[in-house]
């Protein structure tokens, strides 16, 4: 059980400040972008909810879902930059750089989704324990 508890304490939610940094970068920091930022956050949330598929994921699965959502968000941003660059007359070097970023984003998302699929397929069991009178779901041994 000690190992499972250690895993639980290590599995953590992605910091809201990290999500904010990604959303701010995509929407722009300036004033008047609040609606766009809210839309992007909602998109991220919807993607995560879709990945969770209506279930309450354990901590490991949850961390993978949140990470995959951010990877998906980053892929969209990278793809957008490539298409925007096509209309802005960027240099060949800049264009290659942007396309490589898309490839890396794609690989990162696929790797995370593959890991999520493995965790689900093998059904890493969830154990419920009470920590400080609060129910906690742990990924642990069967």
């Amino acid at each position: 059980m000690a190992k499972e508890l250690e895993l639980w304490t290590r599995a953590r939610r992605i910091d809201a400040a990290v999500v904010k940094a990604f959303v701010d970068f995509a929407a722009g920091d300036g004033a008047g972008k609040e609606a766009l930022r809210a839309d992007l956050r909602a998109d991220l949330h919807d993607f995560a909810v879709g990945l969770a598929g209506g279930s309450e994921p354990g901590p490991v699965e949850r961390e993978l879902i949140e990470t995959a959502s951010l990877c998906w968000f980053w892929l969209r941003l990278a793809e957008f930059q490539v298409s925007a660059g096509d209309h802005q007359g960027v240099t060949l070097h800049q264009s290659e750089h942007a396309e490589k970023r898309v490839e890396r984003a794609h690989r990162r998302l696929l790797a995370t989704l593959r890991t999520l699929a493995q965790v689900r397929k093998l059904g890493v069991p969830t154990i419920q324990v009470n920590v400080a009178n609060q129910q906690v779901n742990l990924a642990g041994t069967s």
């Binding site: 190992k3 499972e4 895993l7 290590r10 599995a11 992605i14 990290v18 940094a21 990604f22 970068f25 490991v60 961390e63 993978l64 949140e66 990470t67 951010l70 990877c71 980053w74 750089h97 970023r101 890396r104 984003a105 990162r108 790797a111 995370t112 890991t115 999520l116 493995q118 965790v119 093998l122 890493v124 069991p125 990924a139 642990g140 041994t141 069967s142």
Partner: peptide, 30 residues
């Protein structure tokens, strides 16, 4: 570009950490 690189680096770290955690959870589960 620097900001993009920083964010991408951060995302790499998060993805690596999540996969390592999953790896360990599966190992722990036998």
């Amino acid at each position: 570009r620097d900001r993009l690189d920083d964010l991408e680096h951060e995302l790499d770290g998060l993805a690596e950490q999540a996969r390592a955690l999953a790896h360990e959870a599966l190992t722990t589960a036998g």
